[in-house]
């Protein structure tokens, strides 16, 4: 189990920063900018959350297996493949949270910051980001739980290779297949604890005041 836990943590170590950066950037883009193809891009980004993991896994498998450039990256049945598989269904959760977080920041506040001498990046750092921080943290927490819990997409793209791509959810599946319920239960309890913790964090972010995080 320690091995599977290690792989799961490695997946998170790669995916959490990516979720934070890409999710925040895309969420800001969809909240604050109008550009050609915006609706189509939004649909594509949000689609993974609405698709069954097997369908998403199938298309991802075809994409990284058949497109020569992607194929040469060697993503199939490898750790990078597992990280990508966990990332995709989690990203829409982060994008959606970031988008509604940024939409909740009044543009008048950003305008005030501009007239007080801040260029765009400083407006973002001093006003937009701090005011959207709670929804961002809540979104990141849920997206992380989703990435940690991915089963179907990872199985399709990265397989279930112990020591390489076997994450905790896949480990549970393998233990049940081997009728080792004790180990399966232990791993499941760990995932339940992470799920509960992430929901508690979301609750705290949603219920708290708008004033600084303690």
């Amino acid at each position: 189990m320690i091995e599977a836990l290690g792989i799961s943590l490695k997946v998170l170590a790669v995916d959490v920063p990516l979720l934070l950066l890409a999710g925040t950037a895309l969420g800001w883009l969809f909240a604050r900018r109008r550009f050609p193809g915006r609706e189509a891009l939004l649909l594509i980004v949000q689609l993974p959350v609405a698709l069954p993991p097997s369908v998403l896994g199938l298309y991802l498998l075809l994409l990284v297996g058949r497109v020569p450039v992607l194929r040469s990256l060697g993503l199939l049945f490898s750790f990078p493949g597992a990280a990508l598989a966990a990332l995709l269904p989690a990203l829409p959760i982060m994008v959606q949270a970031a988008r509604s977080g940024f939409l909740s920041v009044s543009p008048a506040l950003e305008e005030a910051a501009r007239t007080l001498g801040d260029p765009e990046w400083r407006v973002f750092r001093r006003v937009t980001l701090p005011l959207a921080r709670r929804p961002l943290v809540a979104g990141l927490s849920l997206a992380t739980a989703r990435a940690l819990g991915d089963f179907g997409v990872t199985l399709m793209v990265a397989g279930n290779i112990p020591g390489r791509t076997q994450t905790l959810p896949l480990y549970i599946y393998s233990r049940i297949e081997a009728l080792e319920f004790g180990r399966a239960n232990l791993a499941a309890a760990l995932l339940v604890a992470v799920g509960v913790a992430s929901l508690l964090l979301v609750k705290r972010m949603e219920g708290g005041r708008r004033e600084p995080l303690v």
Partner: peptide
Amino acid sequence: VPAHSRRIGLVHQHLALFPH
């Protein structure tokens, strides 16, 4: 010249004080 370099202050109708 962009807003941040104009040196023009603005008090918005709803004040737009930074709540955080």
